[in-house]
Amino acid sequence: MQPALSRRPRWMTELIAVWGYVQRNYYLTRRYWMWELVWLVYTLMNALAITFIGAGVETLEGGGGIDTARLMTFLLIGALIWSYLSMIFDVISETVSWERWEGTMEYTFMSPASRATHLLGMGVYAIVYGILRTAVVLGVAMLFFDLELSNANYLSALVVLAICSVSLVGFGIVAAVMPLLSPEKGQQVTYIISAILLLISGVYYDVSVLPGWMQWMAQFSPVTYALDGIRSALLDGAPLGSLRDAIWPLLLMGAVFVPLGLWVFHLGERYAKRTGKLKRSG
């Protein structure tokens, strides 16, 4: 067969396609800007409200001995990191549902761009967009609160966040297969996974306060290690070398979840193609 398009190497056409997905999502964000604004305000209010809980503890009976500045910083870090990581998870896990809702599913899935490219494009956009949105929320929150960041090691925190982003992309890809397996109920399952991650990962409290079985589950969530590492870096100024206990599980999860996610997605896509579920309506 003679290729109809110019003879570009495969890696180059895949790179062009990655940019295609990133650019498309940028266009969509621009068109749905009102909704984006709504979510930004919601995230901001949520982060502020949760951080005010820390301030409120001081007014409770027996709360006088609590370091409220540290507690507020602890809560704000949880709110910000959860907002960022859950957004990555949601964007990736909604990959199929979004295409189905727009009616573009069949067009996208019959294009020659590989599924890894598709999911990578979604992941890149989610990370860039998530960083920008989190930076805005952090900037506003710093105007409201006297945070305990005097010892913060920002480099360590950023490295942990970057590694965790990769793990979350892999985790999101595994979840993204759900709407392929069940067009009607698949997306709801991903929201449940997201809610479970919020509960078990120690977003607003230390994992040690959870019942034993939840602590056992928490060790499989990349968010647990990300929050541990980032809090140590920002609250205690932990250098990178001392964050091994947070970093190595994240590296391991990234190495497992990304290929596992792609493999599971491939199987899910084959199943959808065999059963006729790869269709625009769900």
Partner: peptide, 8 residues
């Protein structure tokens, strides 16, 4: 533009 990029 999006459709074209999917085809390189």
């Amino acid at each position: 533009l999006y459709g074209a990029k999917l085809y390189g």
